[in-house]
Amino acid sequence: MFTGSHVILYSQDAEADRAFLRDVIGFPHVDAGGGWLIFKLPPAEVAVHPTEGEPKHEFYLMCDDLDAALARLGERGAEVTRPVAEAPWGRLTAVRLPSGSELPLYQPLHPVAHNL
């Protein structure tokens, strides 16, 4: 029934953030016209968490080895914005996008669904 998911990141400097996803993260892409890049993402999964506050949505890039991913991104000029947080269910950090916002990175230590 569904063929994929489409994630939208809103940015105050979309051109620079697109270049970061293309050049630093290294995602393959298509040009939908006029430099409007649409990126191929790795396999995805979705989780629904309870909240007492306002509902919100989050986007994380998942990796098998967070330390190796950070080393590769650092070689390409990415700035890590948070120390790696260790939790029983995973390891978390983030890198800065050129627009100033953060792109969270996540190494899950729990079973994952994206390879089903």
Rank of each mutant, 00 (worst) to 15 (best):
M62P: 06
H49R: 03
V24H: 08
V84L: 01
T81F: 10
W36Y: 15
P83R: 05
E75L: 10
D65W: 08
R18Y: 09
P42D: 10
R76H: 00
V48K: 11
G34P: 06
V84D: 10
P28E: 04
A87D: 07
Y60E: 08
A19H: 06
R82K: 15
K56T: 03
A68I: 05
L37M: 07
A78E: 12
A44C: 11
A32P: 00
P50M: 06
A85Q: 10
Y60N: 07
R76V: 06
H57T: 15
L61V: 09
H57A: 15
F39T: 14
G74V: 04
E79A: 05
H49C: 10
A44N: 12
R18E: 12
H29M: 01
T51L: 04
E52W: 04
E54Q: 13
R18G: 00
V30P: 03
E45R: 13
E45I: 01
H49W: 05
I25P: 06
E52G: 02
F20S: 04
A85W: 08
A78V: 05
E86D: 15
A44P: 09
L21F: 15
R76F: 03
H29E: 08
E15L: 03
A68K: 11
A32E: 06
V48Q: 05
G77C: 00
R72H: 03
A44E: 07
L70F: 00
E52I: 02
A87G: 00
D17M: 02
E52K: 06
V84S: 00
G34I: 05
D64F: 04
W36A: 15
V46M: 13
G26F: 10
L21G: 07
P83Q: 07
R18K: 10
H49T: 10
L66N: 13
F39L: 12
G26Y: 03
R22K: 14
F59V: 15
G33W: 04
